[in-house]
Design a protein around this nucleic acid. Structure first.
Length: 420
DNA sequence: CCTCCACAGGAAGCGCAGGAGT
DNA sequence: ACTCCTGCGCTTCCTGTGGAGG
């Protein structure tokens, strides 16, 4: 029987696991100097008592958008703090500096105008219990606070595309500037949807996008350097082979360039090494980490899927298994890829599955939408039927081993139906 | 060439739940 | 508490689309 001290004293390759967590903000952000400089330049007028321009930052996930902005915000706050400390100085800039403030709002959680404003007020006036006030009241409170302090307020709206009534929110916040005689409100919007700008009302677009910035995905070399940086502090010395770092970087770059994925690979491979009592992480561990990470993602994606999409996927898995058997029995070496299934075939099977699970089936039209969703998630791949096939249809292939998929889904259904 | 097949995907409309306005 | 409205999931209907077959 192992004791806790056994487990705690087990040899580990990690020095500080926190460094590998996606929330960790390193003190140095490599390859983002230019972007950080631009943001700082854009924000700096607030330190002189002028209104900074709004900034809109966009780029794919894991390109360091949030980290960069947070980094600037931290610098900004520390600057105003030191300025406040020696506010005895008569310089005007010191006085203005002491009245600038940043406010970070994650719009995934605060996803409406009301909630965002409420959050801002809470930051400005922590003592105030803002629950139960109407929008107008909260707005007044915010304006009052900005006006009486004369402070410049910089609001960071992370994942800004999640806000439902964004046009209204932007209107409200930009209008605030017109009403204020001193102080002001500026925005930093962050989004990972590159097309998001287009669906904005032209007026809010011009106000939010006064200053635009794009974060390009990291290249394999940059990823390698970032990983290296984290490895130095996150792992014990000489526990990660250089080629493993490069492999993790290459794998990530070929997928999405999402730095978080690279860190996840490191974390996983470290855990694998610890489990097996291996002292050094090599390419092998990284490969394994990738495999488990991928299936984990798939498992997560599948089990959170709506019932009917799961049934469609189950139908695909079923037919894929059957077809695999048949081709192996009859033709032996299957000619290229008849592991593809036709759309109609899958729909029939889906209807059977629906009957079996006692659920009313969806129409064929909606089933096609389900297929699109599944493809988006990478759970299936589809191609257009070319020559050799009657009519025009989509050919479907499952993205993961069908037996595994089937197991996951059937387990899910047994849980759901067991509860029933 | 035309027609048919086996679909894809747009448009319109419908019932419902939940939020806003009063 | 009440209506009214809006967004969402879905169906029905319809118009392509591209190869097979006569």
């Amino acid at each position: 029987m192992p004791s806790f001290s056994d487990i705690l004293n087990r040899p580990t390759v990690f020095a500080d696991r926190n460094v590998l967590s996606p929330h960790y903000v390193p003190s140095i952000l490599p390859f983002r100097d230019k972007e950080i400089g631009k943001i700082m330049a854009a924000v700096s007028p607030a330190l002189k008592g002028e209104r900074p321009r709004n900034i809109f930052v966009y780029g794919k996930t894991g390109t360091g958008k949030t980290a960069s902005v947070k980094h600037v915000a931290a610098k900004f706050e520390s600057h105003t703090a030191t300025a406040r400390a020696d506010a005895a100085g008569t310089a005007k800039s010191a006085a203005a500096s002491s009245r600038a403030k940043t406010c970070y709002v994650n719009c995934r959680m605060y996803n409406s105008r009301y909630r965002v404003i409420q959050k801002i007020v809470k930051e400005l006036l922590p003592s105030l219990d803002s629950m139960g006030f109407g929008l107008a009241m909260l707005y007044e409170k915010m304006m009052e606070s900005v006006l009486t302090s004369g402070a410049h307020l910089i609001v960071v709206l992370d994942e800004v595309d999640m806000v439902k009534d964004l046009d209204d929110l932007l209107y409200t916040l930009t209008r605030a500037n017109d009403e204020l005689k001193q102080g002001g409100v500026s925005l930093i919007g962050i989004s990972n949807k590159l097309t998001f700008k287009d669906q904005l009302d032209p007026r809010s677009r011009s106000s939010l996008c006064e200053n635009e910035m794009v974060f390009a995905p990291y290249t394999a070399n940059q990823l390698a350097a970032i990983i290296d940086q984290r490895v130095k502090t996150g792992f014990k010395p000489h526990t990660v082979e250089e080629s493993a770092v490069n492999l993790a970087a290459a794998l990530t770059a070929s997928e999405t360039g999402d730095a978080r994925y690279a860190l996840k690979l490191l974390m996983k491979s470290g855990e694998i090494a610890d489990d097996r009592g291996i002292k050094k992480i090599t390419d092998k561990e990284i490969e394994e980490a990738r495999h488990t990470a991928d299936t984990e993602v798939a498992f997560e994606a599948i089990s959170t899927l709506p019932d009917h999409q799961q049934m469609v996927l189950l139908a695909v898995a079923h037919l894929a298994i059957d077809k695999g058997k048949n081709t192996r029995l009859t033709t032996g070496t299957a000619d290229e890829d008849d592991s593809f299934l036709t759309s109609g075939e899958v729909y029939e099977e889906y209807c059977k599955q629906a009957k079996h699970h006692r659920k009313p089936r969806r129409s064929a039209r909606w089933y096609r939408e389900y297929l699109n969703d599944l493809e988006m998630l990478g759970l299936i791949t589809t191609i257009e039927s070319g020559a050799g096939m009657r009519g025009r249809t989509r050919l479907i292939r499952i993205g993961f081993p069908p037996a595994d998929v089937k197991k996951i889904i059937e387990k899910n259904f047994s849980i759901i139906e067991g509860k029933d």
